[in-house]
Nucleic acid binder design. Structure first.
Lengths: 219, 219
DNA sequence: GACTCTATCTCGGTA
DNA sequence: TACCGAGGTAGAGTC
């Protein structure tokens, strides 16, 4: 990893045009060739960047970075303050717990948390337009398609609508209804879901994690 | 900006739990207090981070970073290889050109570029499920809802469909038709838009920028 | 390679 | 502040 602190200007021409006026910034060049230009604030996102793979040419007073799509990043160096390089080696990578997949797994183990009498038919039920998070049957035997989100946004409701439209093409299933499950459901998403005739359920991740499927069956 | 290259482990507890095993990484602490831990690859996104505002406490062999929501980032330093600090100063910020907002503004100023005889009723027309980019009336006085995208994808067509569905609930407007405008419309999006009965218009950003509203009126 | 979907998304605008 | 939409979304997984 190469770290250059320099007074510079930067221009990006690609999916849009962007320009950075003269200022002192950190230029980070990683071992895989990706380049990021950071100011001294503003979260982790760099002001400007070019991902790998790309070709970096050092013209002395300016660098040009070009990617295979023809997008270019031009860094004009007006004054290099420091330049260092470091060997970091490979990284073992990040281990995560608590993402949507886990929420889905917990709900698959305890569909009663969504609705009394619900039993799982299949997780990641395949359709031509992608897998449905959970497919269940309710107490009356009707098929229920369930979309699981951490944050219930409008996009998720549309996703559920597409899946249900798809399932309706499969007449062997009979009538199918939809349930939209999330830890938090946004107001606009709730409006749309209800307009579409979907039930909306908010669930708590920690409660779910604390539940045992057998405990749930006591109700 | 403080730059520390160190062999470290990192733990995040917050919206999810995440753990980084021991490895050499770059730890970036910006002037606003935000912290980012970078490996030597993987584009610009850090492996782990904590945005400002937060409180960083240096316990010598480990740092704890806590934000107001109670999320914590713990960095255990096993071996500090280098540590530097730099004064970068304020950044004038990024200047962008060619984003959707510019396209929308240009089209609002020259709706004739979409269709002869179109006059603007309102930009960002409010509905319960979000604002419609442009609402116009055509030469015949019919209401036209217009969705503007830089890249015309299926999502944008569905967005337009939702808006029109919503507008139909407002009987005072009469029949409403939809126009999908983008610099590039993907084939799938075009098929869907036409199936929904929407007109599809591709516009050129540079042409629009060159137009004057009065020039357009010459036609 | 194309498509789909998630994200500690980030970031900006607005009510 | 919370909500909502755009993004050079990036990144991962699947087909």
């Amino acid at each position: 990893m190469r770290l250059v602190v320099a007074r510079c200007t930067v221009d990006y021409r690609g999916r849009l045009d962007a320009h950075l006026p003269e200022a002192v910034r950190l230029i980070m060049v990683k071992a895989d060739g990706c380049v990021a230009i950071h100011a001294d604030g503003g979260a982790y996102k760099p002001l400007n960047w070019m991902n790998a793979p790309n070709t970096l040419v050092d013209h002395g007073d300016h660098w040009t970075v070009v990617n295979p799509k023809g997008e270019t990043l031009t860094i004009t160096l007006l004054e290099v303050l420091t330049e260092t390089a470091h060997e970091l080696g490979d990284d073992p990578g990040l281990q995560k717990d608590g993402v949507e997949a886990h929420l889905q797994a917990l709900l698959a183990a305890s569909p009663q948390a969504i609705e009394d009498g619900l039993t799982l038919v299949r997780r990641e039920y395949p359709t031509a337009i992608g897998p449905i998070d959970l497919v269940c049957r309710d107490a009356a035997g009707q098929v229920v398609a369930i979309e699981v989100k951490r944050r219930g946004d409008i996009d998720g409701v549309e996703q559920l609508a597409r899946y249900i439209e798809r399932l309706h093409l499969d007449s062997s299933l009979g009538a199918v209804r939809g349930v939209f499950v999330a830890q938090v459901v946004k107001p606009q998403a709730r409006v749309l879901a209800e307009a579409r005739g979907f039930r909306v359920v908010e669930v708590d991740y920690d409660d779910l994690r604390g539940m045992r499927p057998d405990e749930l069956r006591l109700f």
